[in-house]
């Protein structure tokens, strides 16, 4: 296997994982208007959960690291556990943070949650081995077939893309359903949606938990490939990579999300890892984050709705009803 196969497969895997994250965040932010600044926490929850149910009981082979929930679950259960972890964590966080309050406060509270979670996991070593993180995570499905994730990256890339495609189809179908339309109604005019009989708090919580489950799944997929997970992998800034991807591509537009995920996380953050090193180690990393921040600000200045904005939803007037056709206005404030 040549280096190039490994390199391209790795990029494809990152694309699949980030696409899952992008779909989840787009459902929450683009469709429902929930500004989830703590998104990365749910991905991290899934990754940690997948790691500990793969690593085996604590104190066994991997006794140099300590963690809770140590067990060895067979194939589909590891990813199910990851998704459930993402969903449970988002349910707990959503219960207090999704109450009716100013949108900027809500965003700030979720950002705070993200920073706190990081501090707790770093400082509380028995939980997930503190700031050193967990390592030695394997790929349960690969063990059945007899390959390892890094040994057969092409297979892993195909597997990631397959899952991403299935989730994409499911979320696409969900967002076109009446449920998806009620999400957009809530985003565009909360009071009107509430007057129509929609339960705003419950809708928000539903979309938060579904997004959290997908985020957890993406974390599980990622950790089974890279084999390790630590607080360094989920700093608050990671959330904004996904946000920038959606902003660049187009808020509430699926083609936009794909374009954004291709452009931002893969091209910006992953490609330069393979460039020759310039300056002291870590300089390129810092400059990437500066670029992400600048891209984010320029997008807000010039194309607040992204390169491919959400299409206006045209509702034609039913026959025989007087008055003008109803054309809901596009986008939330």
């Amino acid at each position: 296997m040549s280096v190039w196969v490994f390199y391209i497969s790795t990029l494809v895997i990152y694309f699949g994982v980030d696409l899952l994250a992008g779909i989840a965040l787009n459902l929450q932010f683009g469709y429902a208007g929930v500004v989830n600044f703590g998104f990365i926490v749910f991905q991290a929850a899934g990754a940690y959960m997948a790691a500990v149910v793969v690593l085996g009981p604590s104190g066994g082979v991997a006794s140099f690291q300590q963690y809770i929930f140590g067990s060895r679950l067979p194939f589909p259960l590891d990813l199910v556990a990851a998704a459930v972890a993402g969903a449970v964590v988002s349910l707990v966080i959503g219960l207090f943070s999704l109450r009716r309050m100013r949108r900027d406060y809500q965003a700030a509270v979720l950002l705070i949650v993200s920073l706190i979670a990081l501090q707790v996991v770093s400082a509380d070593v028995p939980l997930f081995n503190g700031s050193n993180g967990l390592t030695g995570v394997t790929w349960p499905l690969g063990q059945i077939v007899g390959v390892t994730a890094t040994g057969a990256p092409v297979i892993y890339a195909a597997w990631t893309l397959a899952i991403a495609a299935i989730v994409f189809a499911a979320v696409y179908w969900l967002s076109k359903s009446p449920w998806g339309r009620s999400l957009r109604a809530m985003r565009d005019h909360e009071d009107a949606a509430s007057a129509m009989g929609l339960n705003i708090t419950s809708l928000r919580l539903q979309v938060f938990v579904i997004g959290g489950a997908i985020a957890g799944l993406s974390g599980g997929l990622l950790v089974e490939y890279i084999g390790a997970w630590s607080p360094g992998a989920w700093g608050y800034a990671e959330t904004f990579v996904i946000f920038t991807a959606i902003f660049v591509g187009g808020v509430g537009n699926y083609r936009g999300v794909i374009v954004g995920v291709l452009l931002v996380p893969v091209i910006f953050l992953e490609l330069p890892r393979f460039l020759p090193a310039v300056g002291y180690p870590g300089l390129i990393d810092s400059l990437q984050w500066v670029t992400i921040g600048l891209a984010w600000m320029l997008c807000l200045l010039f194309r607040p709705r992204g390169i491919l904005p959400e299409k206006r939803m045209e509702v034609t007037k039913p026959a025989g009803v007087p008055g003008p056709a109803v054309v809901p206005s596009e986008g939330g404030a």
Binding site: F240, L287, V290, G293
Partner: peptide, 16 residues
């Protein structure tokens, strides 16, 4: 709300 997002981008630029 978007102003808050702008300040967040700013903080990424300054921090990093």
């Amino acid at each position: 709300f978007e102003m808050m997002m702008v300040t967040l981008g700013l903080s990424l630029v300054i921090d990093y």
